[in-house]
Each structure stands twice: as C-alpha cells, then as structure tokens.
Design a protein around this nucleic acid. Sequence first.
DNA 1: TCTGGGGTCCTAGGACCC
DNA 2: TCTGGGGTCCTAGGACCC
Length: 418
Amino acid sequence: MYALVDAISFYASAEKVFDPSIRNKPVVVLTNNDGCICAVCPIARKLGVPKFKPYFQIKNFLAQHHVVIRSSNYELYADLSEKMMNVVARFCDEQYVYSIDESFLHFKHYQTIIKDWHQYGHKIRRAVWKETRLPVGVGFGTTPTLAKAANHAAKKLSGYNGVAVLNDETSIHAALSRMAVTDVWGIGTRLGCKLKVLGINTAWDLAQQSPQAMRKQFSVLVERTVNELNGVTCLSWDEVKQPKKEIFSTRSFGQRITSIHALSAALTSHSVIVGRKLRQQNSLVKRLHIFASSSPHDDNYYKKSLIYEFPVATDNNCQLAKAISIVLKSIYQPNVNFYRCGVGAIELVDGNYQQPDLFMPNKNNPHLMNCFDKINHRYGQGTMQLAGEGSSQQWQMKRYFLSPSFTSKWQDIPKIVC
DNA sequence: TCTGGGGTCCTAGGACCC
DNA sequence: TCTGGGGTCCTAGGACCC
C-alpha cells in the first residue's frame, strides 16, 4: 500500500499558520517577483481566482473581493514543510519527500497491522493539524499513481473529507469515474486533448484502455499510467525516489540588471543553491549549464548559455563558483537588460563512485561543505555565503507582500499578547 | 509606467564522425 | 524504377508538475 500526503494549497495555508486573522479570509500567494498567482486557498478558489495568472491582470478583481495577497515566503514554507514532513514520517518507516508539500509513504510491512486505512489517514491528518496547523489530504492506493489519484479525491471530491482509500474495484471505480483524465498524474492538457478525441474523458475511461494500445498510440509513459490505475505497480519504490537527473536553479530578477558584477553575483548564488541540492542527494556534477537572458517579451531578446565541463565531478561550492567566473565574460553583454539567469547541473554522477584524476590532487573538501550546509540549515540559508555572491541586493526579487519570517528570524518571532 | 514562475525530464532533429 | 548507415552529442522545445 502507498500513501500520498499533500498539504491543501500549501503556500496559502502556511500563510495562515501564524496569522489567525486571515484564516477565514480568501488568501492567494504570488510567485517570485510577484509575477503570477501560485497558490489559492479554498475560500479564494470559491471566488473563482485562477492559478498561474499574471498578477497584474487580476489585480482589480482581487481588490474587489478583498482577497489577502502574499508574496512567496520561502523561508517560512521550507521550515513548515520540514515540520510537516517530520510529523508524517512518524506514521511509516519509508517516506519519500516528493516536493515541498507532498510525501509518498510506502507501507511494505503494515498490511496486516493496519486494519482500517481510513482511520489511519485521519490519524495522520489530525496529527499534522495539531502540530503544525496545516491541513493535509491523505490518499491511499495500491500503486503510487492510485495514491496520487486518491489524494486528489480526498481533497477535491465531495464526500471524502480529506482521506480516500483506493484499494478495490468499487472504490477505484467510484473515484476515477468522477475525475477528469487530466487529473491523473502524468496526463497534462496536451495528452488530455488527444485522449478526448478518442472519447477518453474520465480517469476511469483511461483505466479501461488496453495498455499496449496506449503505448502504441502515445508512449510508454501512458502505458505505465494505465497499468498503475489498474493496480499494477510499474513505478517501483526505488524508481519513485530516484535521485534527480538534473538540478537547476534559475530566477528572474526583481529589477533588470546591466552590470557584470550583479550578473556574477546572481549566477554565483545560483551555483551555491545547486551545490546544496547536489550534496543533498549525494551527487556530483560533471557538466554545468550556465545561462542568462533578457525577457522574451523584449524586442531584442538576448540569451546566451554555456556549458562548463569539470575535469573531475564536484559538489564543492567554490569550484562551482569558479566555473561561473570562467564563463561569465562570454555570457555577459553590455547594453543588455538582463531579466533572468540560472545554473543547471545537467550531467550528474553518483557521489559514491567518483572518478578521480590520477594527476590532480583531490580538491574536494567534504568537511568544509558539510559545515557550510549545517550552519545554513541551522541559522537559515544565506547565513554563510561565498564572497562572490555579493552583498548588494539590487537583483533580489520583488516581494511587496511578504509576511514576516515567523520561524527563521529572531525579530519576526510571533508574540503572544495577554 | 510597467508588469508575465520555477523545476525536471524527454525527444526530435541537426551536426558531425567513421 | 528507385533506393543509400549508424552512432554520438548537442540543442531547442515540448510536456508535465507544483
């Protein structure tokens, strides 16, 4: 049995945790630079606020309906996410954190112990709510795709009340026949359109297809999805939690930048983020993709990207930053209004099997980076920086509606007034 | 006045090589 | 009459997810 535990409109709910005054109000959260809407709480959803619409296009509508607006507060979300994941982890010995607000659980040895999955799901929900004040949905299924579908049912379909269990023909039919085919994990709008032409409208319709035919017509991925919807596990636990094959950090700037120093600082910061993520999954990077561009909405769209290949794969921030300094001059162009930039590790190797260079001393110092990570995890990302990241905040993102960092800054700790 | 997210994976097609 | 390989690497863009 698999479970997917997923917070209900996580960013919006996180904003409500330390601010009870907005708990019963419609709340939306904006993406970086306050660009688009990226989270809509259930109350705001009822008003018809769409996800991923540019903010400026819907500003007036939000004002009319007194919707509370927040900029993305990643420091807060990352912290609450960790707390939530820790609570969930107590309920199963195998957890895989799939994204900031979702984790899969694999109940390999629990089949005989847990008699009532519904009850168990509610137990998880209650514990998370009690300890973090975050609402979650819990979906159980015999495959990861069914667990994902169950989670959708738990949160979006009436009658489930936050927990759904899909473990037999009846329960699977009941939920899937009420779900659009595009609500299935892995079926997006494009595939959805093509499936519609074939008369496949609901998730249940898709489950009824022959896997072989789906493979022939579409891809091996759709075949796998059909099998999974029928309780045939194709995504083994090891596959679900495989390390990432690419790791990117990219961001648009709050203000356009034109100086090479600002671009250098921004790229260096991205390389530090990539470094951290590499170390988290015990990977090393062999090739690094480094890029910067003006806005695609601009007249003279400029973009430039380069690949830097390391002689010996690394996860060391200093070496990543060095790569940036080497390619910087080839990417930078005077008179370009840079709008975004980023760094991507595109060829990764397993940290356990590093191929060293016979003629070069190993410059990787795991202890240094280990210490770096520990300090930043404890005192907040950015506490310890590379000098190359700079102290100027000129290129930092716009966050006009930022809530306090309740959990990660001393001066922002909530005060209880008696 | 102007504003338009970020991350991961996959594939088609071109360039190049033998 | 007409036809003409196969592999690797790179890049851009598509698709999907949150």
